[in-house]
Amino acid sequence: MSTAGGIIRALNSGVKHLAIRRFTLRYPEQKLKFVGDGFQFNPETGVGIAGLRGRHILYHEHCTGCQLCSVACEGIAEAIGMVKVNETWKQNKKAIMPQIDYGKCVFCGLCVDACPFYALYMTNDYELSSFTKSALIYTPAQLAIKPKISQDVEIKVDDRGATHG
């Protein structure tokens, strides 16, 4: 009889879930809201600031072309290469800046940790797919653009279940 009881309880549980709100995030229409503006790092204290580790943003006015990000990436993904830019900054005599290949990047954020000049951060932008491999290589000019993001959905928990929206 306990078998029959268990079967009935299981069926009942299944039927009960017909009334619970659906949990699926309908991705292209809904986008998750993330904490902060992205992962940042304070070299003074050596502690990061929480945020999504998405695509990088490069502040040209801070970058000195020191290659530390590139060196940090060397054993990890080898995604960062230094390229010449047609800009003149007085702190960047060699006029080289990082260029990131997102086909290789693993988004570990150790390059952000390595940057001592507040130049390289990460943003909330994660939609980087493209049809060609070369479009995944972001030049310093592309990296400087602040992404426009509309992310407004987060998990809501209430009595009728958790849902996105």
Binding site: E74, V83, G103
Partner: peptide, 11 residues
């Protein structure tokens, strides 16, 4: 070590 993609001659 393996050179990164897109690293120019200068680098």
């Amino acid at each position: 070590s393996g050179t990164s993609a897109g690293s120019s001659e200068d680098s």
